[in-house]
Design a protein around this nucleic acid. Structure first.
Lengths: 134, 134
DNA sequence: CAGGATCCCAGAGGATACTG
DNA sequence: CAGTATCCTCTGGGATCCTG
């Protein structure tokens, strides 16, 4: 946003948001995207190709898949490796920092399960079970 | 979404997303909203009134503030108490489950700080320090 | 195979003005 | 004081078709 003219005292409170330098917002940011959690889940145990990801997530379109992968790549969460072959081959893998996100996700899952239990009594059937963390 | 006709085998993978029953998505969901983190931070140590919240977040408009508070309330994260007085008074507080979100947020902050350190070398100056957790 | 190029739409967020 | 009512914009995600 532009430099909105605000008195300047309580501004401190949301300075972190305005400057986009709040680590919590950053964490939410990299995970916000309709397919990102699913993509990270797909990559939890190693590399996958563009087509594999597309097949694993049947209702995502190539255009959107590309977009989500690009964002994750720009955020440093995944790495893209393209091989100069015919036909083309591209593999995506989690980066180190990307892998370090998994425990954080597990922690969110735990809260979410408690939340479901208390809110609707309906259990959630997510993918992120303890299995994925070695 | 509608019941898109998908073969039905790999569909399991994103069933959690489609059904919106993934606890991780739920956690991200309740926190996704431009001002929600800031509002939760404002309420971390007890109740606050509508006007107080507005003054603490100078660039939010009443309409949007109402919207964000309504969503948090519907999600069971905060509670709204209106007093039948003139002039009106309304107080917002975290619910029990809402308070239980704070440690999760702290955990996200920790990852975010590591992320900043590794990505840009720029430290984040967020609000969610260890102070807020008793 | 792994995308790129276009066009499109719903919904979150915001500006502004008004009210019980 | 604590909102509500309208109107408007911008962008994330999607549909569709095309290509090195």
């Amino acid at each position: 946003m532009k430099n909105d003219t605000i008195p300047g005292n309580q501004q401190e409170e949301n300075a972190a948001l305005e400057k986009n330098s709040c680590p919590v917002q950053a964490t939410i940011g990299v995970l916000s995207g309709k397919w990102k959690l699913l993509l990270l889940f797909q990559l939890r145990n190693g590399e996958k190709r563009f087509g594999e990801l597309g097949r694993a997530l049947p209702s995502i379109t190539p255009a959107v898949l590309t977009g989500q992968l690009r964002e994750l790549e720009e955020d440093g969460i995944i790495q893209r490796k393209a091989y100069a072959e015919i036909p083309p081959r591209v593999e995506y893998t989690l980066t180190e920092i990307g892998r370090s996100l998994l425990p954080v996700i597990i922690n969110m899952e735990k809260w979410g399960l408690e939340y479901f239990k208390q809110m609707k009594g309906a259990a959630g059937d997510c993918l992120w079970d303890d299995q994925i963390i070695g």
